[in-house]
Amino acid sequence: MIPDKRSTIKKKLIIEGLFALIISLSVLFFYSYKYIPRGDELEEWSFLGLTFTKNGFNQIYLAVYFYLGKIVPLYLLVIWFITCKHWWYHAILIPIAMYAFQLFSSIYGTSLKVDENELLYLMGICMVVIPIVYFIRVKLFDKHVHGIDLDAIDAELKEYKERERLQKEQDLKSKKL
C-alpha cells in the first residue's frame, strides 16, 4: 500500500472515530443536567470556565436542561449534515436552523418567550432551502428516472442549429449562382 494512501486512511479513520465518539457521548451530554446542583438559592454555577445563571428559569438545572435539549440535537444534526452524501442533505438545514434559533432565544431571551417566534425566522430559511432541494430533486429525477439528460439535449439542439445555419448558407450560395 502506498504510504500517502495509508496516512489518508488513518486520517479518515481518526475523523470517523471522533464523530462516532461524539455521537455515542450525546446521551451522556444530554443527561448531564442531572448532575447540576439544585436549589432556589443558587443564582449562578460555574463549570469548566462557563458560568450558568437561571436566565428566567426557576432553577439553574432547568436552564441547563433546556440548553442541552437544544445543543445535543443541534450538534447531531450538524454532524449529519456534514457527513450526509445524499442529494437532499440541504433539507437538514431547516431543523438545524430551528434548533439554532431556539438555542439563541433561550440563551438571550427569557424562559417565557422561548420557542415562540422562531417560525418567522425559519420561513426565510425555508424559502431558500426548499426550492434548492426541489430543483436538485427535479434534475436528478429527470436524469435517472425519465432518462432525460439535459446536457445531451443541449448538445443535440446546438447540432440542429449548426445544421440549420449551414443549410441557410448553402441556400444563399445556391441562390447567388
Rank of each mutant, 00 (worst) to 15 (best):
I2L: 11
P3C: 02
R6Y: 12
R6D: 12
S7A: 11
T8D: 15
I9R: 08
K11Y: 13
I15Q: 06
E16H: 15
G17V: 06
G17H: 05
G17R: 08
A20F: 13
L21T: 10
L21M: 12
I22H: 02
I23Q: 07
L25F: 09
S26M: 00
S26V: 00
L28W: 07
L28Y: 07
F29Q: 04
F29S: 04
Y31A: 05
S32F: 02
Y33C: 01
Y33L: 02
K34G: 01
Y35Q: 07
I36S: 01
R38L: 00
G39R: 01
D40R: 10
D40P: 04
E41Q: 07
E44M: 10
F47D: 01
F47I: 09
L50T: 08
L50G: 00
T51K: 04
T51R: 07
K54M: 02
N55L: 03
N55W: 02
N55I: 02
Q59A: 05
Y61R: 06
L62R: 06
A63F: 15
A63E: 05
A63D: 03
A63Q: 08
V64S: 00
F66P: 01
Y67D: 02
Y67H: 03
L68I: 02
K70E: 13
P73V: 06
L76Q: 00
L77E: 01
I79H: 00
I82Y: 05
I82K: 03
T83Q: 12
C84I: 09
K85T: 12
W87I: 14
W88M: 12
Y89L: 11
H90K: 14
H90F: 14
L93P: 02
P95I: 06
A100D: 04
A100H: 05
F101A: 15
F101I: 14
Q102W: 07
L103A: 01
S105L: 09
S106H: 05
I107Q: 00
K113H: 13
K113F: 12
V114Y: 06
N117S: 12
E118L: 09
E118D: 14
L119H: 11
L120W: 13
L120I: 12
L120E: 10
L120R: 12
Y121S: 10
L122S: 03
L122Y: 03
M123I: 13
M123V: 13
M127Y: 11
M127P: 04
V128I: 15
P131Y: 03
Y134G: 05
Y134I: 15
R137Q: 09
R137S: 13
K139G: 04
L140I: 13
F141I: 09
K143N: 10
V145A: 09
V145M: 11
G147N: 05
G147L: 04
I148E: 04
L150F: 14
D151C: 03
D151L: 13
D151V: 09
I153W: 00
D154I: 08
D154S: 12
A155L: 14
L157M: 15
E159A: 15
K161W: 10
K161C: 11
R163E: 11
E164H: 06
E164W: 06
E164G: 03
L166W: 05
Q167H: 12
K168G: 02
Q170F: 12
Q170K: 13
S174K: 15
K175P: 00
K176H: 06
L177I: 11
L177Q: 13
